[in-house]
Write a protein that binds this DNA or RNA. Sequence first.
DNA 1: ACCGGTCCCTGTTAGC
DNA 2: TGCTAACAGGGACCGG
Length: 338
Amino acid sequence: MPELPEVETVRDGLARHVLGRTVVGVEVRRDYSVRRHDGGPVDFAARLTGRRLEAAVRRGKFLWLLLDAGPGHGDDALLAHLGMSGQLLVRGPGRPATVVVTGPAGRLDRPGPPDPVDVPDLVAAPGPEGWVDHPHLRVRFALDDGSALDFVDQRTFGHLSVPDLLPTADGAPGGLGSPRAVVPAPVAHIARDLLDPALDRAAVVDAVRSRRTELKRALLDQTLVSGIGNIYADEALWRARLHGGRPTATLRRAEVARVLDAAAEVMSEALAQGGTSFDALYVDVNGASGYFDRSLAVYGQEGRPCPRCGTPVRRDAFANRSSFTCPRCQPRPRRPRA
DNA sequence: ACCGGTCCCTGTTAGC
DNA sequence: TGCTAACAGGGACCGG
C-alpha cells in the first residue's frame, strides 16, 4: 500500500504528467470512491469538468491537485487519498499506460514479485480507441490532450473529493509542491509531515511528550506528525532502538527526536530508491517491492534474525494489527503495555 | 479535550 | 476440496 514515499512519487509524477491539462470529462464508475464528496458523484463530476489542474500537492498521505480560479466556482481542489491500494495512472494518447503510482495491492505486506496479471494488462492496452480498462478502475478523468487520469483502487479504502480550500494556520505553503498557503478543508487537522520543510520538529517532540499514550500510538497520530503508517513506525522504532509501548510521558526529548529522525531517514531512503527512475514503466512497482524486500528490518519479519543482533524478530498484537520488534534492541517498558 | 476501540472494503491466504 | 475466518491498511467517527 502506498506509504508516504510512494505518495510523494505519485505527486511528482502528477506534477510532470498532468499539470496544465484541463478536465474535459469525469466518469465515476464506483460511487463509493467519491463517498467523501459532499455533493455526491454528479456534483463531483460537475465541479471538475472544465477545470485546469494547476499544482500537485502532498501532505502526509493526502494528495491534491489545485484547480484554476475563476468565476462560477469556488476556491477548491481535487483531493485524493490512496488508501491501501489506490493508484493513479496516466494513460497518454497513443501510448500504453504510464504507471504514475505504485503498485499492485498488497505488495508491501506480502513481499514478492509484482502481480503477473495485474500489471501486464496495462502494457497490453491498445491505443485510445480501444483502451483496456483496469479491472479495478473506479474513476476516470478525461483530459484535454486526449489522455486520461485513472483512479484505480482494488480495496476501495481510497477516496476522491472536491473540497474547499482553507488558509494554513502558520501561513506556510499547504504542503510539498504547493504554491499557496492553503489546504483542503478535510486536511486542515492533519499535521505536516517529516519531509515538509515547514514542519516544526521541536514542536512535534513536545507534542508527543505531552500525550498520555504509548510512543507508537503517538507516531501514528496524524494530528501530531503525518505520514507515518504501521510499517514506518515499526522500522523507525527499530532504528531508534525504542519500544513502541513506551509511555510517551517517560520519554526524553532526545529519544523522541531520535525516532522522528529515524522515520524521516527511512522515508527518504525509500523515496530515493522508489523515485529514481520514475518514468520507466513498472519501475515503481518493482522498485517499491524491491526496496521493501531488501530493506525492511523488522516489519513482517517475524522469526527472522534482527539485522543488528540476530535475535529473532517478535510479533505482537497492536490495535487490531501487528507490531514487529527486536526483543533485544528494543526492550519492552517495565510496565507491560496496557 | 483527549484517548482508545470500531468500522469501512476487498482479495488473498490459512485453517478446518 | 470447498468453505469460512482472519488479515492487511488509514482515518472518520463514537463513546467513555
